[in-house]
Amino acid sequence: MPNIRPSSDLRNKYNEISDFCHEHSEPVYITKNGKGDLAVMSIETFESLAGKFELGKLINEGIASMKGNKTRSFREALDDIQNSIE
């Protein structure tokens, strides 16, 4: 169940909101004049979510490359990685 709080709680109960976000790794939804306005979350939760979006983007790029026959063998890719390390 989402945690929904009024915007005044950001000022008056910041520590409580922060503790919740860190303990539960989920956002707190902030309302303004009774309507949804913001989602507040810990930095760790945000970075995890952003990483998932980036991974999804890379997977979609890979799928598009496969559909367009713009791929190369595993051996070629591994050789490129090894050459970049040396």
Results as ranks from 00 to 15, higher is better:
L49Y: 15
F46N: 02
S7E: 07
I59K: 14
E16V: 10
Y14V: 14
M66R: 11
M1E: 08
I4W: 12
S84Y: 05
E47Q: 06
M41T: 07
S42P: 01
E23S: 12
I30T: 08
E61G: 04
N15A: 12
F74W: 14
T71G: 01
S73V: 06
K70Q: 14
K32I: 14
H24Y: 12
P2V: 04
H22I: 10
D79Q: 00
A77Q: 01
G56Q: 11
K70Y: 01
H24D: 00
H24P: 04
R5A: 13
L55F: 06
P27F: 01
S73F: 03
S73D: 01
N15L: 13
G56P: 07
L49T: 15
K70S: 11
E86L: 05
N60Y: 08
M1H: 09
G36N: 07
K52N: 11
D19C: 06
K32S: 15
L78I: 07
S8V: 09
I4N: 14
L55C: 06
I4G: 10
A77H: 03
R11C: 10
E54P: 10
S42G: 10
M41H: 05
G56V: 07
R5Q: 14
P27C: 03
M1Y: 15
M41N: 05
K52P: 03
I30M: 10
A64C: 08
E26A: 03
E16R: 08
N12Q: 11
L38P: 04
N69S: 15
L10T: 07
E54A: 13
F74L: 15
V40M: 11
L10V: 12
I59F: 04
K13L: 05
S48T: 13
G51D: 02
V28L: 04
K35W: 11
F53W: 10
P2H: 00
V28F: 03
E76L: 11
A77V: 04
F20R: 01
S18T: 05
L49D: 09
N69M: 14
K57V: 02
E47S: 13
G34R: 11
S73T: 12
K70L: 13
N3D: 09
S18A: 14
E86M: 04
N83G: 02
D80Y: 00
S48D: 05
G56W: 01
I85D: 03
K67L: 09
F53M: 13
D19G: 06
Q82I: 08
D19V: 09
G51F: 02
N83H: 04
N3C: 15
R11A: 12
M41F: 02
